[in-house]
């Protein structure tokens, strides 16, 4: 499924959070969203997932404006994994993953056998089969994050939008998750903090700064020393190894007034 973000802007209380953002994620592509804190990554993802109504522009799935889908229709196309979502309840892992079936459930019907197969597969995919009956409260941060991703998979979406899914994850699971996102057929738009992981697993990157797209393209083109100095305010040395992989090493804070401040 192709996701078009067309001239999207979002303004709240006279404060412009994102402005004129325009890009396309083609079907099956894995696109990384990078940028400093407050650059508008979360708002952009929420607009793309239909959770925020953009004040300007439109979001389209396969060319259809998502406003015509309605919440349920959107949820049948796209899964969204937010940053920190916790629950006070005594939900078990399997219950949380089962929430992914919500967009497909009739209000009177319980889970059917197909739902259960899908849930089991999602649990297995995220290595959670053994934890299925554990309650949310007893999980580590990483296990909770993986449960959320499993829940998104149980939605069997055409596209997955994830907001900083690597937080709380041990490095092993960070790699596993990024590998999975890169390998999947689904269209993926993911906000990532770790530039090296973004560079390694994403087909393309979108660099966001102060609500606007500063650079867009393959990692090699986006992650330049100049871009990083302008956006993050760091002096960075970027090298490419024999396999074509980028190595990013931060040398220090860039001098001068150029250093980017982060709004909010």
């Amino acid at each position: 499924m192709r996701i078009d973000v067309a001239q999207v802007g979002w303004t709240v209380r006279n404060k412009t959070i994102i402005e004129g953002v325009d890009f396309t994620v083609t079907s099956g592509e894995t696109v990384g969203l990078i940028g400093p804190n407050g650059s508008g990554k979360s708002s952009l993802l929420r607009c793309a997932a239909g959770l925020l109504k953009p004040t300007h522009g439109a979001v389209r799935y396969d060319g259809h404006d998502i406003r015509v889908f309605g919440p349920r229709g959107i949820a049948q196309h796209i899964a969204f994994v937010g940053q920190t979502s916790h629950t006070a309840g005594e939900l078990r892992v399997a219950d949380v993953v089962a929430l992914g079936r919500t967009p497909f459930r009739d209000r009177w019907r319980g889970l059917n056998s197909t739902d259960r197969l899908i849930i089991d597969a999602a649990l297995a995919h995220m290595g959670l089969t053994g934890l299925a009956t554990r309650t949310w409260r007893t999980l580590s941060g990483g296990e909770q994050q993986r449960t959320h991703v499993a829940r998104a998979l149980a939605q069997q979406p055409w596209g997955i939008l994830l907001d900083e899914p690597l937080n709380h994850l041990d490095i092993r699971y960070q790699l596993e998750l990024m590998e999975m996102l890169a390998a999947t057929d689904q269209t993926v738009l993911v906000a990532v903090h770790d530039l090296a992981l973004a560079a390694r697993f994403c087909d393309r990157l979108i660099l966001l700064n102060q609500g606007k797209v500063t650079a867009e393209g393959i990692p090699h083109d986006v992650l330049t020393a100049e871009n990083l100095r302008n956006v993050f305010g760091t002096e960075t040395e970027i090298t490419r190894d024999s396999g074509g992989r980028l190595t990013i090493s931060h040398r220090g804070v860039a001098p001068g007034p150029e250093s980017s401040s982060t709004p909010g």
């Binding site: 959770l51 049948q76 939900l91 919500t102």
Partner: peptide
Amino acid sequence: DGFAFGQDTAASLGI
């Protein structure tokens, strides 16, 4: 049930 993780998650589940 969908409200368990807050309104954003609920909305993303099509509620």
